[in-house]
């Protein structure tokens, strides 16, 4: 166990899996010579060569499809999108090809592929570079959707995603790459589909995942100063969702707030709230509240961007509200 950044944890996962299985290759823009737009692939070209660390032209639709084709005939591609905003150009290959081929071939063609890259907002990148697409992709049967919030989970989930025989959408975050945490050395696998109770409390549940885990943990620290103890359920995987972890926590706390980066309408939080009302209706002491991005394209100006994003004060306010405490 050593302290490492989220970026290095991903790098370790890629490196270890490429050493373990020569069918695994990394493809995307700037992954090789440039060493990765966010340096996640640093050193991989030197170790594995240009057949396995493949720089592409700027052509998301094309190289995503190349990945799916290679997966059809037995390779295990890791396709890096410089951001998920650009992956919209490739969405046909993710949704119409990767997610469908197993089913519409009657089980003949599994597609073991990982589509990964940063998702959601960084800082002042404005509307086209600041979007969270978790809900879009989580909507699609045939995909698994993973969104780790800590370095250890980033490593363990990426290794599991690469070994998975299904298409896995893997969401990272520009603002997460430099965060640090304990990361187990060597073989360390985090199961896909399993949430993690990141903090224990009995007053309220915060259900969250990905970058928002950091906000939830900060909010929990501040709430603790007022004697409010919250469970932080880190989903880690958005699809398939760990229903048992959510309901076990809500049955204990009787209150829930769902915190996500994306927009409100048809968001992941809507799915979580629905699960809670179905599974825990008699346990609830308050309506489930949601914290999310404002229902606008992301603005550029610093103050407007701050107002649009979910944050710690908004999360605290939501927890206090479901506990019927006055806002402070």
């Amino acid at each position: 166990m050593a302290v490492a950044t989220y970026r290095d944890a991903l790098n370790q996962a890629l490196k270890e899996e490429m050493q373990r299985d020569d069918r695994v290759f990394l493809m995307g823009e700037e992954v090789g010579v440039y060493q990765g737009a966010y340096k996640v692939s640093k050193g991989l070209l030197q170790e594995f060569g240009e057949m396995r660390v493949v720089d592409t032209p700027i052509t998301e639709l094309g190289f995503a499809g190349i990945g799916v084709g290679a997966a059809m005939v037995g390779l295990r591609p890791v396709i890096e999108f410089m951001t998920w905003n650009f992956a919209l150009l490739a969405i046909d290959q993710v949704v119409n090809a990767a997610a469908k081929l197993l089913y519409m071939s009657g089980g003949q063609f599994p597609i073991p592929i990982v589509f990964r890259g940063p998702n959601g907002a960084a800082l002042q990148l404005s509307a086209q570079h600041s979007q969270a697409f978790d809900a879009w992709l989580a909507h699609i049967p045939g995909l698994k959707v993973v969104s780790p919030g800590t370095p250890a989970d980033a490593k363990g989930l990426l290794k599991s995603a690469i070994r998975d025989d299904n298409p896995v959408v893997f969401f990272e975050g520009e603002m997460l790459y430099n965060t640090k945490g304990d990361v187990p050395d060597g073989e360390y696998l985090t199961p896909i589909g399993q949430a993690d109770l990141k903090r224990e409390g009995d007053h309220c549940t915060i259900v969250t995942y990905g970058k928002s885990v950091l906000l939830a943990m900060q909010a929990a620290d501040q709430l603790a100063k007022d004697g409010i103890r919250v469970d932080v359920v880190d989903l880690r995987t958005v699809r398939p969702m760990d229903v048992n972890a959510i309901s076990a926590s809500v049955r204990k706390t009787n209150r829930a707030v769902v915190l996500e980066e994306g927009w409100e309408v048809c968001g992941v939080g809507a799915q979580v709230a629905d699960l809670i009302q179905r599974e825990c209706f008699d346990d609830l002491d308050a309506p489930v509240l949601r914290v999310h991005q404002a229902d606008v394209p992301m603005p550029y100006a610093r103050n407007l961007e701050r107002a649009a994003k979910p944050d710690v004060p908004k999360t605290i306010a939501a927890v206090r509200k479901v506990m019927y405490l006055e806002e402070r």
Binding site: G69, V73, L75, D92, Q93, S105, F109
Partner: peptide, 29 residues
């Protein structure tokens, strides 16, 4: 969407143009 893995018949694809990158990927493999 006709498929036959045993004959390396990798399918009928329904989105015009969508399978052409897949062909390049098979060539890559």
């Amino acid at each position: 969407h006709l498929f036959d893995r045993s004959l390396n018949f990798l399918g009928g694809h329904g989105i015009v143009g969508g399978h052409v990158p897949l062909a390049a990927g098979i060539g890559f493999a």
